[in-house]
Write a protein that binds this DNA or RNA. Structure first.
Length: 737
DNA sequence: GTTGGCATTATTTTT
DNA sequence: TAATGCCAAC
């Protein structure tokens, strides 16, 4: 009799069939761990008769959760929707929204992002007379965050100061910070985990109800858990101990975020009688790539010994190229991708460029725009962290939760209402004196003697918020956000500015509206709080979808869990990767973490891996000369091909290289695309219209050819000359001439 | 209260 | 280099 489990290898089967008690799956890169997890869930339900309701799977990103959900839905028949699949953070939010009132918060709490945290900390430093030139807000927040990761409360922190002056200051800041969060009815990211633990510890009845619900728990990327997350999981699994964790100590790359590698290394100590299964067969990469990865990671000590192997072909050698500078490096990579798409049967989304720091993305972006190649940058400034988005969200937050002082303060004078710092200071004093929130103080503005006439300016603002609040139950979120945009004149103001930047901001606001509409459409019972919550927990990587055809650019960190046929690792230089910080650190494990990052990068590649470096590079305004990354020396020479093309490009004058690269793009760059881009339904511009291009500026459309898959548009640019481009990539905006 | 110009500073990675 | 922060002038 055949079953879905026949396709699994022996170790995978063992992991799937071992359902009771603690289980550690050491899953090497590309060893099919998600398959094991999903099959294990199916096995639990179909063969063991476990109620789907009793199964929980936890991941780190929404994207991973979404993918898992999809695959579980595919493989499990009836009841898959009641399996709890989500991230640590959203799991905690879900629990807290229900019960946090038991530990003294309101269930409609807001979640602060790092921007909000910084604003709050700035305020605290001012009040506590902390010189932010000596102790920066960010570093104070860093200390607080690590304390929370280790479950150290402000009180415990204070006990450990032992008369150390600066530690005492930190303790005071931590204490005050928590106090402020509570009075704002807000939680930061770390609090989501910490407060859930606090809830479980203070209310054993709640804990037990969740223990009984989640009888079978699975945790993905276990090597990335910190102490708080470990504790949370231990509490939940405490009663039945049916805990299955999957991870790879060689891919632990989040120490800076509090991840504790000991959680996975010591799993057998924490859970005696734990079963350990190693998955060492790699299904993803060629033998060459896998050998290179193995040889690099071998240089680390203090790891669980395992060696990945594969049945796959040997594949091509790993390519290495060194260039004069970062421009040439970027040109080469962009040109190589263009060639691959043209000549080999590849498409853009088969290619990924990985780098150590987000700052490295800019140069690539420039080249991709110039080459008219579609690309997507993951990371950098989060969409929801943009100023205009945060402003609009602050209105929504103020309407949703009047206790969120930060949101109120953000928008009280946006758009300008002539309310200045002096007035706000007086309102704040009044609020503190009367022990009420900032918004409530605003409501009583006429009672505040000291502010005089300024009260007249505050009044319309309060009325505005009150009106919207009263409308919330009766109108849709879409109507609500549109009313905010209308009444505040936010977009109008931007339109009047008429700058490139303002246009981008308007676009972002429109996207926000789109997102709110999508949220309302996707949810059975959409609420304002629900939307704000979803928005607070998204990461940029979540927006990455496999459907659209573009080259993906991201940091090595963001790449974990992904795979691509062609991978480019750029900036392979000592000082960049491994970073200067880790080279100069006196803790050798820092360099090991960096090496793991390199291992992660290499193992993302399925068929081709290209490593590149630049001899000189501009770093924050000054030129650095870096030698080739030490990790390259750890890859055996026989796996590397670093000869081809080097002299050719190196010896050419710079202008020639550039011209050569340019000519690469000119000739039928888009001829053979396996995955056609979606043809735009219609264009909102025609021949003779003025349009705007992100890089080339404004110009006049002189021709449009329907190319079947897409429209080919010819534009005569004012400054950049005449260009032909595909409508769906160029994203031309019609402008009024 | 608002604006703009100049100086300073940061860079590792992010749920 | 680019973003942020501070101060002085309006």
């Amino acid at each position: 009799m055949s079953s879905i489990y026949d396709t699994l290898n022996a170790e995978q089967k063992e992991a799937v069939f071992h359902t009771e008690g603690p289980l550690l799956i050491l899953a090497g890169a590309g060893s099919g761990k998600t398959r094991v997890l999903t099959h294990r869930i199916a096995y639990l339900i179909e063969e063991k008769g476990i109620n789907p309701w009793n199964i929980m799977a936890i991941t780190f990103t929404n994207k991973a959760a979404g993918e898992m959900r999809e695959r579980v839905d595919d493989i499990v028949g009836f009841g898959s929707e009641s399996i709890w699949v989500s991230t640590f953070h959203s799991t905690c939010v879900r629990i807290l929204r229900r019960y946090i009132d038991r530990i003294g918060y309101d269930t409609n709490f807001t979640i602060y992002d790092s921007d909000d945290q910084k604003t709050l900390m700035k305020d605290i430093c001012k009040r506590l007379n902390i010189d932010t030139k000596i102790y920066k807000e960010k570093s104070i927040l860093g200390v607080i965050s690590s304390s929370k990761d280790e479950l150290v409360t402000p009180e415990e922190f204070e006990l450990n100061t032992m008369g150390d002056y600066s530690k005492k200051k930190l303790a005071a800041a931590y204490k005050e910070y928590q106090k402020m969060l509570r009075s704002n009815n807000a939680l930061d990211f770390d609090d989501l985990i910490v407060k859930t633990i606090e809830l479980f510890r203070t209310c054993p009845d709640i804990l037990e109800s969740y223990q009984d619900r989640f009888r079978y728990i699975m945790v993905d990327e276990y090597q990335d858990t910190n102490t708080a997350q470990f504790t949370l999981i231990s509490l939940l699994a405490g009663k039945y101990k049916n805990l299955c964790v999957v991870g790879d100590d060689d891919q632990s790359i989040y120490k800076f975020r509090g991840a504790n590698i000991r959680n996975i290394l010591d799993f057998e100590k924490s859970y005696s009688h734990a079963k350990v299964i190693k998955l060492e067969q790699n299904y993803r990469s060629t033998r060459n790539i896998l050998h290179a990865a193995n040889d690099v990671i071998r240089h680390n000590i203090g790891r669980k010994k395992k060696t990945l192997w594969t049945d796959n072909e040997e594949g091509t050698k790993i390519q290495f190229r060194q260039f004069q500078n970062a421009y040439e490096e970027a040109e080469f990579i962009v040109g190589d991708i263009s060639r691959k798409v043209r000549e080999d049967d590849s498409s853009y989304n088969d290619c990924a460029i990985l780098y150590r720091t987000n700052a490295q993305s800019r140069i690539f972006e420039e080249k991709f725009v110039y080459a008219n190649i579609p690309y997507k940058i993951v990371g950098g400034v989060n969409f929801y962290a943009r100023k205009e988005i945060k402003d609009i969200l602050a209105y929504l937050k103020t309407i949703d939760n009047g206790k969120d002082d930060l949101a109120v303060k953000r928008i009280i004078n946006v758009p300008k209402r002539g309310i200045g710092a002096t007035t706000l200071g007086r309102v704040q004093d009044y609020a503190i004196e009367n022990e009420i929130g900032f918004y409530d103080a605003l409501k009583e503005a006429d009672q505040i003697a000291s502010i005089g006439k300024s009260g007249l300016k505050i009044h319309p603002f309060v009325t505005f918020i009150q009106t919207l609040r009263s409308k919330v139950p009766h109108i849709s979120l879409e109507e609500l956000i549109n009313e905010i945009i209308e009444s505040t004149g936010y977009v109008k103001e931007l339109e009047a500015e008429n700058s490139e930047e303002a246009l981008g901001r308007i676009e972002n606001i429109n996207e926000l509206v789109t997102k709110i509409v999508a949220y309302e459409a996707d949810n059975e019972a959409p609420t304002l709080s629900g939307f704000l919550e979803e928005v607070a927990l998204v990461a940029d990587i979540d927006s990455l979808d496999a459907e659209s055809n573009h080259v993906v650019l991201m940091t090595l960190h963001s790449a974990k869990g992904l795979e691509f046929p062609h991978v480019y690792m750029a900036g392979m230089e000592d000082g960049i990767f491994p970073s200067y910080m880790t080279i100069s650190s006196d803790d050798p494990t820092d360099l090991e973490e960096e090496r793991r990052l390199c291992y992660v990068g290499i193992t993302r590649a399925r068929e081709n891996l290209m490593l590149t470096a630049a001899k000189q590079r501009m770093i924050r305004g000054e030129t650095q000369y870096n030698r080739v990354s030490r990790f390259l020396a750890e890859i055996p020479k026989e796996l590397l091909d670093s000869s081809a093309g080097e002299e050719k490009i190196q010896d050419m004058p710079k202008s020639m290289v550039y011209a050569q690269a340019k000519s690469l793009f000119k000739t039928k760059a888009f001829e053979s695309k396996p995955k056609p881009v979606e043809k735009p339904v219609g264009l909102d511009y025609g021949i003779g219209d003025s349009v705007k291009h992100i890089k080339f500026g404004t110009g006049v459309v002189t021709g449009i050819v329907d190319g079947g898959r897409d429209f080919e548009v010819t534009v005569d640019f004012d400054k950049a000359g005449t260009k032909k481009m595909f409508a769906s990539f160029a994203k031309l905006k019609k402008v009024d001439a």
